[in-house]
Design a binder for these strands. Sequence first.
DNA 1: AATGAATGAGCCTTCATTCAT
DNA 2: AATGAATGAAGGCTCATTCAT
Lengths: 192, 192, 192, 192
Amino acid sequence: MPKLGMEPIRRAALVKATIAEIGAAGSLDVTVSQIAKRAGMSSALAHHYFGGKDQIFLAAMRHTLSVYGAEVRGALLMADSPRGRVEAIVRSSFSQTSFRRDVVAAWLNFYVLAQRYDDARRLLTIYQKRLRSNLRHALRPDHGDAAGELAERLAALIDGAYLRQSLGLGLADGSRAAKLVLGCLPDAPPSV
Amino acid sequence: MPKLGMEPIRRAALVKATIAEIGAAGSLDVTVSQIAKRAGMSSALAHHYFGGKDQIFLAAMRHTLSVYGAEVRGALLMADSPRGRVEAIVRSSFSQTSFRRDVVAAWLNFYVLAQRYDDARRLLTIYQKRLRSNLRHALRPDHGDAAGELAERLAALIDGAYLRQSLGLGLADGSRAAKLVLGCLPDAPPSV
Amino acid sequence: MPKLGMEPIRRAALVKATIAEIGAAGSLDVTVSQIAKRAGMSSALAHHYFGGKDQIFLAAMRHTLSVYGAEVRGALLMADSPRGRVEAIVRSSFSQTSFRRDVVAAWLNFYVLAQRYDDARRLLTIYQKRLRSNLRHALRPDHGDAAGELAERLAALIDGAYLRQSLGLGLADGSRAAKLVLGCLPDAPPSV
Amino acid sequence: MPKLGMEPIRRAALVKATIAEIGAAGSLDVTVSQIAKRAGMSSALAHHYFGGKDQIFLAAMRHTLSVYGAEVRGALLMADSPRGRVEAIVRSSFSQTSFRRDVVAAWLNFYVLAQRYDDARRLLTIYQKRLRSNLRHALRPDHGDAAGELAERLAALIDGAYLRQSLGLGLADGSRAAKLVLGCLPDAPPSV
DNA sequence: AATGAATGAGCCTTCATTCAT
DNA sequence: AATGAATGAAGGCTCATTCAT
């Protein structure tokens, strides 16, 4: 029963299915047919809307990172102190949307994708830069010149926690992961 | 002209070639033929010695992690203070053998492998446990009860730095990465 | 906003687009979508009007051959001597409408089509017969019993020139091709 | 039962099967699997030896034209007069090896292939050039300056006869085709 | 009249793996 | 010890065709 304006619906379904499928397989060795099937359509249609497997992956990446970005921005709006802003960023990283098993597995594989496709690398690089930049700004008021290095460290810690989670070892609880990361900050601002 | 004792030589060549090939491709999408070719033999022989592709990958993982482990042990022998031991561990993680572009790429893909094969997961889990354990022991004298959490944090930082390196963003210089990680430690032992 | 009498317009557009597309591709490996796009409509509509790909091809063939046939008839009307009639036929074969690069490429592919579809073979067979018959009639007055063989030879020469043209080697100039063909005729009628 | 030195055997079998298959289908719409099956092997092996479909086609072309070329050269050796040399060339073109139904169908499709691949075009162009050159040389002694034009004409006639044969109309008998072509020559040398 | 939506079927190609030598 | 030969299985992608609107 074909209707009009199916495109965005189909694309969204495929993106969602892609993440789920990568998560389930734990790798990019996922067939377009599997993805399409999970999304409830034929593989031909998936090709029709995305043009190819790579672009499906790319779209899934973009989606994942943009959802994460939106979550960070949302959390930042709620924060009312520098320290609160830092915590908002870190907690967003371990929210229930982003720290789910399959999303983390997909995220890990995006790093693999980035080794092959410039587009993917660019996306991840931007994400890394933005994360550090957000942290730096939030850290500056309390930590001054140390903000840069601290941001770098927090960011690396976040990624490290993700990696651990991907092994299924972690910290299943996002809030414990957040605590581990935040513990890295000097209790009191360096000056004053 | 059959030669004697070729087996260990062939296996070593294949393991080395596997890491190089994964590094070059940036993913596990590497054919046995490619690996065998780089190792200077037929793909049939590679199968003969390892039984299958998965086992080649596993062997490459084992090799990488065991080299790393040996390096850590070696560095620990040289250290003469608790703090020195911590630094030894961290520095080993960023040594020129382990922090090379292709080795890091391979390492990243081992995490992907771990999603699929229990053997691989076990290897990585052991590595993670041993790393934390080593760090904990080295930290205990100076940091007491905080050692556990600090070890966790240092370990995550190391992995995070690797991830960054895999994007080619890093810290090409291992010593800078080490500094970043070590900076996480309280300058002075908590209790004096 | 349905329009009336669109059918002949659409069909004509599709036929024209088909020849152009075959000419551009140099083969029958042309998708219905390509044809439809060039004709400014959806592929579904092309199917609606023609029923299927084969029939689109057939229609393009019919059109090409019938245009050629019309041109020959027109030229014959102008001729006022037996020899003139022969020349008219030959010149029509190399007219600017028929001897264009893409039309020749399409024509070549019609021979391929004729290997597969009886309808196509029938069309080409009729064209061949008619060409020979026209030539024979025009040759009879001057060449008597030799007319049959001469007709056969002229017809083969024409096709040979087309084949050459399809390689892009030709005789880009149709008039030179005509001269080559006509040179085959004995300068003076055999008897008298 | 794998043996050594299979490559030339396999390649030859594939080339032969390709011509047969194209001949049977009447077009290039032939799958690698069909060809491989007829040649008694898997399609994977066909790819292994040729690298791809196009190259299989190219090889079939090369083979066909080189067999034809060899036949012409052989016939020329036997001829002992200029006129005999001309006849040798023409007769070779209609020999039982070259004028078979399937070979002619394949030959026709090579012209189609030439529209797409430069390599194919080059092959056919060379064949055309060589044919004309051979004819010119053989005609020169008897026909002097007219040799060029006569050669052109004979060559076109030969191709035209092939085209007719491809429709299944012809001249099933090669010797009648040869007679038709040779009849184009002035009975007596122009100057005596 | 016209089209976007949708799919089943099929093809080229790749690859891990096996086997006889 | 070592390899060329060989294949089954599978995947990405294309396309003619149909259908509901």
